[in-house]
Every structure is written in C-alpha cells, then in structure tokens.
Design a protein around this nucleic acid. Structure first.
Length: 409
DNA sequence: TCTGGGGTCCTAGGACCC
DNA sequence: TCTGGGGTCCTAGGACCC
C-alpha cells in the first residue's frame, strides 16, 4: 500500500556558521558560533563542547574557551538561501520552503528527467556544495514527516533514504522528541509513562495518546509516530501574521512607549512592503520570571499605518500592565498583526475606532498618518533604513545600541 | 537551561446568536 | 424564562519550530 519514497527534505547544516566558515577559510575546523548576546548557530566543532543555539554568549564561552564568535551577516545568509532554493527549483516545481535553511520537495514528477529520488538527492547535494559552497543534508522518504526525520539522522553532510515499506523499522528505535511537535514538555510527559521511543509511542492505543495530549493534537502525534501523516508538498501561501518584539527592560513608561513606537514602525513598514493590512493587534509582555502575558484586539477594519497601530498597542500594553503586572519588571514587549488582508495600492482611510473616524479631525489625522508613513517608506527605499528615524526614536538611536538590537536585520 | 526574534498551531472558556 | 444543542467569533495562554 505504501507509495514510493519521493519526498525529500533538504536541510543546510549549521547554516549561518557554515556561511561564515565558507567566507573565512581560516575558520575551518575551529569551534565557531554566530551571534552576540545569544548563539544563533554553531559549527559541529563548537557543538562538541555543548555550544548550540540558543544559549547565551557568556555561557558559550564558558563551555568552550577557544570559541570564535562572529557577528551575524543576515544579507549573506539570505543570498545563500536564495541560491540554494533556486537549485531546488531546478529539479521540481513542487518545493515548499519552511525556513531560511530547509525545504521539502516532491520529485515524483521528475524521475523521468533526473532519475530516481536518491540520484536527485545526490545531485542536489553536489550542486549546492559546488555552486554555493555549503553542505546540505537530505532525507528521502514516503512522507514529509519521515523525510524530515531522515535528514536529521543524515546530519551532518549526509543522505538517508527510507525505502517504502521500511518506515516502521526505521522509526521504532528513534527517541520520541524526533517527532514534530514533541518538545521538552511532551517528552517529559511521555517519560512519566515510560515511553521513550517512537516504537513505544506507536504501540499505544490512539485513544490513550489522545487522552494525554488532547483529542486533536494527540491524534496528530500518534499519526506521525505511525507515519500516517500524508500531507502534500505545497508552495507556501502568504504568512498569517507579521510581528516584532524587543527584549530589554521596558518597565519605565517612557522607555516602554519608545520601544512600542519602534516596533509599530517596524511592523507597519513590513506590512506596507508586503501590501497587507491586519485586523487583529496582539501585544505580548514578558515578565522577569519568564512568564508572558498577551492581549489582543480585533479592529473594525484592517490597518497598516504606524500611528494607529502604535496607539492600539500602547493601550493594550498599558492596560495589561495595570491589570496584571503593576509591580513587575517587564523584560520584553512585542506587537503582532494578524487576520491579514491584501491591500490595493491606494487604500481607503480606515477607521481606528468608531468615534474618532466620525470626526473630520479624525479623518485628517489618519490621512496625515498615511502620508507620513508613505514618505518615510519612500525615503527609506532611497537612502536606506537608518536615514529616516522618527523624532521620538532619535534619542534612542543616538544612544549606544544594545548588541541584540544591532544584530537584527 | 533563563536566552533572540520571527513565526505556527492548539486549547479552553466566554459572549453571542438562533 | 434558567432550560437544549449547535455554531461562530473572540481572547488568553502555552507548546513548539527554525
């Protein structure tokens, strides 16, 4: 009954770190980590010392005193990722990228052109190394989930094929956390029942797993353990949300509001670049004990302008803090927009709240907000991001930037 | 192992409608 | 008028992924 193994999962090894080593050959063979305050990626030499994402930089150096730490260069990673995705596209139109460094392929329709899936996987690996200079591991199997597990087993710089019919033998001895969706909490819960391998998980009645993890999710996990998750490889639709967050002390009101304005600005300009607008604003606050709280509001109409987004976010965050965390330290704030809709080029003036939009002054304010956003976006396109900074952000920008802020895009 | 930023998906409960 | 079932939308929180 099992169909042929034509699904590939291709996953670049230690991606950011590998790009750095490629561009600086003197780093080859050394323990290298990319990051600053936090390790984002580490070479296998560094991983032998227990250095892997996401541990703190100080902890990383403690574990590996000879560690070479390099700051990230995201433009190079994006460029390398595009090159690799282009190579994948040349073997089949059915490519589903799932992050900057990995993708699924369905090569069922390509075998008459390029040979069996295993041969295709081998050619992909050769080309990525020859043309991009990076090692890429590939898993080949009958389903996406199994192909993903196979590529993990193949790492580093390897190829693992799980032929049709041999799925059960392959899966049985692997630890449960290899299953997509089982993390530290799920692993711990299963361990309490004496379940450590996928084979043991599979031997349980489906109803038992459903009782432990909830009907929907439990059934899902049980199916995956049984290699019964046959979703097709699909080109991705557009993202369902756009968000930004910033770690750092935001307990003081003015500090918090400045951060929120910067975040609203970032989220707004990204939405406008993608030509989408969102109806739900969600804010998140993290407290000093690592717990987090969130508040969301659905607006009467979609927005993509910085100003109404900022005002809504301030209201939600300040309300949340007075209600739940008046005496706590705030270590992170975030804004996310969801319920996204595509926007035509010339969008209407969209109301923030009923009462404000009814006034002429309210409409003018929105018009001005939109014109200001457009002007800022245009100037940034022409002169680059740092050229245009909102007045209330200027004080912050002139201050020394924190290493984590300097790290991002 | 307490640490970044960007996401997805699921659960549970409440409000509200018929 | 306190009593059923079903559906939808929304909010808040949590686990997980890269």
């Amino acid at each position: 009954m099992s169909s042929a193994a034509t699904i590939l999962h291709a996953d670049l090894d230690a991606f950011y770190a590998a790009v750095e080593v490629r561009d600086r050959p003197e780093l080859r063979g050394l323990p290298v980590a990319v990051g600053g305050g936090v390790v984002l990626s580490a070479t296998y030499e560094a991983r032998r010392f227990g250095v892997s994402a996401p541990i703190g930089g100080a902890e990383a150096r403690r574990r590996c005193p000879d560690l070479v730490v390099v700051p990230p260069r995201f433009e190079s990673y994006v460029a390398a990722s595009r090159q690799v995705m282009d190579i994948l596209d040349s073997f089949t139109p059915k490519v589903e990228p799932i992050s900057i460094d990995e993708a699924f392929l369905d090569v069922a329709g390509s075998v008459h052109l390029f040979g069996p899936p295993e041969a295709i996987a081998r050619r992909i690996r050769e080309r990525v190394m020859a043309e991009v200079g990076l090692p890429i591991s590939i898993g080949v199997a009958t389903t996406k989930h199994l192909a993903k597990i196979a590529s993990r087993v193949a790492k580093p710089d390897g190829l693992v094929v799980v032929p049709a019919g041999e799925e059960d033998v392959f899966l049985a001895p692997l630890p449960v956390d290899m299953v997509w969706g089982i993390g530290p909490v799920g692993e711990e819960r299963l361990a309490r029942y004496g379940i450590h391998t996928i084979g043991e998980l599979r031997a349980l009645p489906e109803s038992t797993v459903a009782a432990w993890f909830g009907r929907h999710w439990g059934t899902h996990l049980w199916r995956r353990a049984n290699n019964d998750d046959r979703r097709a490889v699909e080109s991705p639709g557009r993202a369902g949300s756009v968000g930004a967050q910033s770690a750092g002390d935001a307990t003081a009101v003015d500090r918090r509001h400045t951060t929120l304005l910067a975040l609203a600005d970032r989220v707004g300009s990204r939405m406008r670049r993608k030509a989408v607008a969102g109806r739900r604003v969600t804010v998140r606050v993290r407290l000093d004990d690592m717990t987090s709280l969130s508040r969301a509001r659905v607006l009467p109409g979609p927005i993509a302008e910085t100003t109404p987004l900022f005002m809504t976010a301030v209201e939600l965050v300040d309300g949340l803090i007075t209600e739940r965390a008046a005496a706590r330290r705030i270590t992170l704030v975030g804004i996310s927009m969801s319920m996204l809709e595509e926007t035509p080029h010339l969008q209407l003036v969209l109301p923030l709240t009923g009462d404000e939009s009814e006034t002429v002054a309210g409409s003018r304010r929105h018009l001005r907000a939109r014109d200001l956003d457009a002007a800022i976006d245009r100037a940034r396109e022409r002169f680059g991001r740092p050229a245009v900074v909102r007045g209330s952000l200027l004080r912050d920008t002139l201050e020394e930037r924190s290493p984590t802020e300097a790290m991002e895009e």
